[in-house]
Structures are given as C-alpha cells and as structure tokens.
C-alpha cells in the first residue's frame, strides 16, 4: 500500500494498467491469423482505450461516482479454465482470456479496497473494482449468449 500515497497515485496505476491491456490486445491483433480475430482484438484494445479515457477524465476532474449500482456476476470466469495467448486463438479463446483478465483486475482492486487507509481511497478502489466487474460481465454475457448457446 505504501506506493499509493494519494488518489492520483491510484488513478495513475489504474491508467497504466489499462494502457498495458491496450498494448496486450494490440499485440494479439497483430499476430492473430484471421482478419476476424484481428478485428476482435482491435475492438478489445479500443474498449480498454475507452476505460483509460474515463480514468483520465476522473483524474482531471478530481471526482468519481459513489457505487450504488449492483453489477450481476454470472461467475463464468470462475469455472472456465484460462488459456495462453496464441496466434491461433478463436473468439471463444479470446473471450476466456478477456474475462480472466477483467476478473484478475476486479480481484486486485477489491483486495486493495479492503486494505485502504481511508474512505476516499477505499471508494476509489471500489469504483475501479466495479468498472472491472462491468467489463467482465460484458464478456461473460457474450460467452453466455453464444458459447453456452444450448446450455
């Protein structure tokens, strides 16, 4: 916790994490074997860029919303086995990878919120965790709709 001295430190960390995700998906887009999967990863990178822009906006304005909304958790990421990134990934593989990444980020921010020294920092971590939870839900819904079609 020592490295997070202020709200700005936390936001910088989160912005940096989003940038890492953008780079990760952009790299996968360049190596993917089919045009359709390249497009999928480019879209994922675009979504992460949107999340980063949102955090930059919060940092600029110095304010963020208090959590009221309940995000449903389908828990698909809890039971689906994660996979390693590869050029041969299918869309199903891409969704599994993405939902695991969002789940890991959610768990990190939730853990940090539990150990936050004050209410402001705690609320910021909870807000970030909730954002990641929303992102995870977006991938889980896609997985639920198409992969688990007849289940």
């Amino acid at each position: 916790m020592n490295e997070f001295k202020s709200i700005d430190d936390i936001l910088d960390f989160a912005i940096n994490s989003e940038q890492e995700a953008i780079d990760f998906y952009t790299k996968l887009a360049t190596v993917a074997k089919t045009d359709a999967i390249k497009e999928v990863f480019t879209d994922f990178a675009g979504e992460e860029a949107g999340h980063k822009a949102k955090l930059i906006e919060i940092k600029k304005n110095g304010s963020f919303g208090v959590i009221t909304e309940k995000i449903s958790d389908l828990k698909i990421a809890d039971y689906v086995v994660n996979n390693q990134p590869s050029p041969e990934m299918t869309y199903q593989d891409a969704l599994i990878l993405a939902m695991h990444k969002e789940k890991a980020a959610f768990k990190l921010y939730s853990a940090l919120a539990d150990r936050a020294p004050n209410a402001d920092i705690r609320n910021l971590f909870l807000m970030l965790a909730q954002e990641e939870s929303k992102h995870k839900l977006r991938f889980e819904l896609e997985y639920d709709e198409y992969v688990l079609r007849e289940n």
Binding site: I37, T90, Y91, N151
Partner: peptide, 24 residues
C-alpha cells in the same frame, strides 16, 4: 457435451479469401 456447435475450419484453411465473422 451438447451445448452447440461451431464452424469446421477445414474448408477455410485453403481459402483465406472467404470472409468470415468473428465466430468463424
């Protein structure tokens, strides 16, 4: 396991010009 099926990729491996969507 009977939760659905997807496209078999064999036909496309030799025909990359056939445009496919993200689900294949």
């Amino acid at each position: 396991v009977a939760i659905g099926t997807g496209p078999n990729p064999i036909i496309f491996q030799s025909s990359p010009d056939l445009k496919r969507n993200k689900w294949g």
